[in-house]
Design a protein around this nucleic acid. Structure first.
Lengths: 214, 214
DNA sequence: TACGCAGAGAGTATAAATACGGAAAATGCT
DNA sequence: AGCATTTTCCGTATTTATACTCTCTGCGTA
């Protein structure tokens, strides 16, 4: 199965490098190149042989999100892999939610790029390993503290904690729980004491990190 | 570069299947097989030619975590890839934190298995794409609100937001930023206004969910 | 049964956050 | 350069949170 690839990247040197990498792979054929989003769209309109586009997130003219949206709208079966220098989470989220099938950092290996292309062609999504591991770290940090068992809150305290997090004041919480404001304040206090944080804002941070809230 | 692999898996059929997959790959050589953790350790003690072990998480005799810990302790340079049917997060966390270099679900493709082996041999960690995407979903739930573009904070506001999150009071923040408490309060207020939340606790929640803080 | 202990509930006083209002400085756009 | 907008800054009044201390109740146990 031959995969026809369109390469969209504004820096000549980078584009040529990637092209030569892909050309050395028997099942992958770079049939077009573009230096910006507009060129890429024009190329796709001329021919319908492209299976997959590998596009830089940061190209002049339009943002990565705009490009993806437009591609997804006009070329339904086209697979889209975003190559980016940016490890900013919001770019990853934006790309995927706009319809990209893959998101790779520019420091991926040749092997990973080729695997990603083949994987995406099977209909799956792919996020590069480095980003995956970073997500893993983030999640495991949350989970790790949870296992430390420092936090033994009472049911009532947990109840109050969740209501604080949802933005209610002590008074409102008191009404909801049919008790007095002072009692709620007491619970809030013991939550703060137990977690050894200085105030409510930090309490929410703690609860979030430990996975009590999410 | 030839990679010598030890295959540890208690089900004969599965083990044979994986062996035939790997044998068809030119750079990978399955030099040993084991049906449980003990056999695997014995094999490794007899020869020091194994570069990488592909081991099932659930084998009789010892738990996955125990096996990994023991391998990591006694065979320092050995790369460890865990193959598992379990997508339970805690197994992934446990495996990686015990020293595994990779964690794959048993439904990975041949291509992904081979890529994972090569990737791990370069010294990197690898978690299979399906699990990565699941983590991504988890995190993107938090970040989804981020794309709504409600939040266009000024530099100053972001600075204040992070300090609030770290548990400082308005006064302390004021000192840190060489400004007055009233100014900080103003920033806090506009943060609350912009995010349309009722108070600071909810503000922290918002910031967390949108990925501004982590 | 008496004891200690932990959770729930509460009073008082102080510190801090929030609402409302407004002015100077910086910035962006013709 | 001129205008509108945003950002930064601050004052006063009110509401809310925090600190400290205390009682009451249920529960396990010596």
């Amino acid at each position: 199965m031959l995969i026809n690839v369109l390469l969209a990247e504004d820096h000549n040197l980078v584009r040529n490098g990637i092209k030569s990498l892909l050309d050395s792979e028997p099942n992958i054929n770079v049939i077009g190149e573009a230096a910006n989003g507009t060129q890429a769209v024009q190329f796709l309109q001329k021919t319908n042989e492209v299976n997959l586009i590998v596009a830089d997130y940061n190209m002049p003219g339009m943002t990565g999100g705009e490009l993806i949206t437009q591609l997804r709208l006009n070329f339904k079966d086209l697979k889209i892999i975003i190559l980016s220098m940016s490890d900013q989470e919001k770019h990853v989220f934006e790309s995927i939610s706009c319809g990209a099938n893959g998101y790779l950092l520019k420091n991926v290996s040749k092997d990973e790029l080729i695997f990603a292309i083949k994987h995406v062609m099977t209909g799956e999504k792919y996020i590069c390993s480095e980003l995956s591991l970073r997500m893993f770290d983030k999640l495991s940090n949350h989970a790790a503290i949870n296992l430390d068992g420092i936090n033994d809150f009472t049911k009532r305290e947990l109840e109050v904690l969740k209501l604080i997090a949802s933005g209610l004041t002590n008074n409102e919480i008191a009404e909801k729980l049919f008790t007095s404001r002072r009692t709620v304040e007491g619970h809030r206090q013991s939550l703060i004491d137990k977690t050894k944080v200085p105030n409510s804002a930090a309490l929410i941070m703690f609860a979030f990190r430990t996975g009590i809230i999410n």
